[in-house]
Each structure stands twice: as C-alpha cells, then as structure tokens.
Amino acid sequence: MKAAAADLGIDKIGVASADPFRELKQRLLRHRELGYESGFEEPDLDKRTEPALLFDDPQSIIAIAIAYPSKLQQAPKSEPGARRGILSRSAWGEDYHKVLRERLGRLEDWLRERVPDFRSESMVDTGALSDRAVAERAGIGWIGKNCAIITPEWGSWVYLGEMITNLPLPPDSPVTESCGECTACIDACPTDALVGPGQLNAQRCISFVTQTKGIVSDELMRKIGNRLYGCDTCQVVCPENRGKNWTHQPELQPDNEKAKPLLVPLLKMGNKKFKELYGASASAWRGRKPIQRNAVIALGNFKDPSAVPSLTAVLGDDPRYELRATAAWSLGRIGGPEATKALERALGGESDEAVVEAIKAALAAAGATSAAVPADGAGRAEREASRNE
C-alpha cells in the first residue's frame, strides 16, 4: 500500500490503531471549558475520540497526507489604487476536501481489489475524528506548537485525511522529532491565539475570524490586515517550512489573480460571479459575505484614499448591515474630508443600530486620523501581503 502511494497521488501514508483517543478527549474537554472552540467542530467529543462509534469493529485507521504549494510565482503587486488581498494557501487551487476524497477513493479501490471483504469509512477535515490526532498516531508527523502536523519530508504544508478500516494492519510508530525550544509560531501569532505550545484559542485565531459572518471587533479587524480567508503566519515563520514549496499536485496549484485578488472588484461581486471564480475553492464554503467583509477591512487597513468612493457605496447601498458597519470602520481608518462627509451623510439615513454605532465610532476615528500619514495601516498590511506571497 505504501509503495503504491505515489501512483495513487498520495504523498505519505501511515497506519494508526483504532483504539480510543483518550488523552485527546481530556485535552478537548479542557479546550471546551476554556471557551477555545471555534464552533465548526463535531460537538460530540465521544465521536471525535472513539472510532468504534463511527465504524463497526474498526481494526486500523489509514492516514494520508498530500503536500500543497506555499509560494505564488510572479505574484501580482498590491499598489496604491490597486490594493490586493490574500487567500491562505489552504484556499489555493481546487478545494482540498474534494481532492483528498478523490485520493482516498483511489486508495479504497486499490484495497478493495486486493481484499474482497474490505470495509472503510473515509473522512477529510469535516469528519468527526481529529485529522491531526490520527496523523500523529500514524507517524505522519508531529503536532507542532502551532497545532499543525509537521512532517519530516513536507513540513506542515500538507492536507490530511483518514480512513477507518476493518483491516488489521500493523501500526506505525509516531515521529520522534519535535519543535524543541523553538517558539517562532507563538511569538509571531498576530492575535496571541496560540496560548501555549499546541494550544489554540480558535476564537482569536485570524483563520477562524475571517470565516465568521458577523461584525468583527476593532482589535481583530486591525490584525486581519489584508487577509481575505485564513491565515498562514504560524506556518510561514516555522523553520521546518523554510524553502519548502510543493508543485507536484496539479489540482492544488494557485491562480494568482484568485489567490491575491484586487479588493475593490470584490465589493461589487454578485453570487453568480463569486461562484464562478471561487466556487471550486475551499474558501467558498461560507459564501461571499465573509470574503467581501474582509475585503472592506483590508481597504481600511491599507488606508488608501482611492478606496473611499467604493467604501461609500457599500456604506450607502449594501443591504447587509455587517458590510455597512465594516465600511464605516474602514472609512474611519482612512479618514480625510471625503470619508468624513460620506460618514456624516450615511448617519442621517441609517436605521440599523449596530451600523449607527459603527458610523459614530468611525467619525470619531476619522477626526483623529490624518490621511496623509498612514500610521500602521498601509505599511503593515503591505508588508503582510509581501510575506504572504
């Protein structure tokens, strides 16, 4: 099976026992008590840690890893008047859920040809089991301080999937490498969401925040920079990823204009166009609202006065209160007479209380901001964009 991995389009295969993940359950309970869950997880902790609840008489779990790219080749530049956002690497190329399910399907077919009574249950990301816990037990890699699986061969630029089976396969040994004394990821996390080695407060993780649909706090909007979906900072700074960029999986290669799109056109994009451009990407699962809201945030963080007319249109015309409130915040960040006039006009015609409060806060911010001095916004966001390339 392992020898056939490359022909099946799989970069690494490991085998784990199907025993309950008892230590993981205790960690998950503590995680829940502290309020660190994202809400996207399987809520039943027994299902997350006991394979026998998901599959009749499980004998082993096969874990797979597929490597993905970390760099854009000849990435387009973000410039004044043509500012760009960035999607995390997990949203480059075709939706990795689809790609991994197809690879797991190939592996299932390969095994079924050789074992007539073969049974399996495959899952990717949205399944009940913890992909990382299975991968760690199966010897795919170790769980880094950034909570990612780090493989000796591919770094942490890997997608994970697993297959519970009725095959009594010999389990692999866990990888003995570790992060050692390195704390680069913890130190670099923009929101201090990594509260300890291997401990993540998902509520503060920018990757999670960019996928929410509501109004984001002032603090977190400033930290988002120009990110439209996801965050790669804790992986970018990891020494184990230095120089690693994988281009051999064709479905996962990025389209530069989709991975680093112009921000202003995103504001006017309808559902049809969004599905056409991003429907095949992992970033589409929450719809266009979060990405459009994040584009509004990015324009505010760039503090580019040329964005004021587009943001004014969102503030005055967009039917979604979340985007109107966010547009007010961005206009306040940019400041200047034009932004201030737009906010004052909108205040008289706005009926939503949350938006009214956002406009008032933005007017106060605009009054304290000089559009001629970009402070920490444009420069920091631009540097973030450069790092993300």
Results as ranks from 00 to 15, higher is better:
Asn146Met: 04
Asn146Asp: 11
Asn146Phe: 01
Cys147Leu: 04
Ile149Ser: 06
Ile149Gly: 10
Trp154Gly: 00
Gly155His: 10
Gly155Ala: 11
Ser156Trp: 09
Trp157Ala: 12
Val158Thr: 11
Val158Glu: 07
Glu162Gln: 15
Met163Trp: 01
Leu169Glu: 07
Asp172Thr: 01
Asp172Val: 00
Ser173Ala: 14
Pro174Ser: 11
Val175Gly: 03
Ser178Met: 03
Ser178Arg: 14
Cys179His: 08
Glu181Pro: 05
Cys182Phe: 05
Cys185Leu: 08
Ile186Tyr: 00
Ile186Leu: 14
Asp192Arg: 15
Leu194Thr: 01
Val195Thr: 15
Asn201Lys: 13
Gln203Arg: 15
Ile206Tyr: 02
Ile206Phe: 01
Ser207Tyr: 02
Thr210His: 05
Thr210Cys: 05
Gln211Phe: 00
Lys213Asn: 11
Ile215Ala: 12
Val216Ala: 05
Ser217Pro: 03
Asp218Ser: 13
Met221Ser: 11
Ile224Met: 14
Leu228Val: 00
Asp232Leu: 07
Asp232Ser: 08
Thr233Ala: 02
Val236Cys: 00
Cys238Arg: 09
Cys238Ser: 06
Pro239Val: 04
Glu240Leu: 09
Arg242Lys: 15
Trp246His: 14
Thr247Trp: 01
His248Leu: 07
His248Val: 03
Gln249Lys: 11
Gln249Ala: 08
Gln249Thr: 12
Gln253Arg: 15
Lys260Asn: 11
Lys260Ser: 15
Pro261Asn: 13
Leu262Phe: 00
Val264Ser: 06
Val264Tyr: 04
Val264Gly: 06
Met269Lys: 12
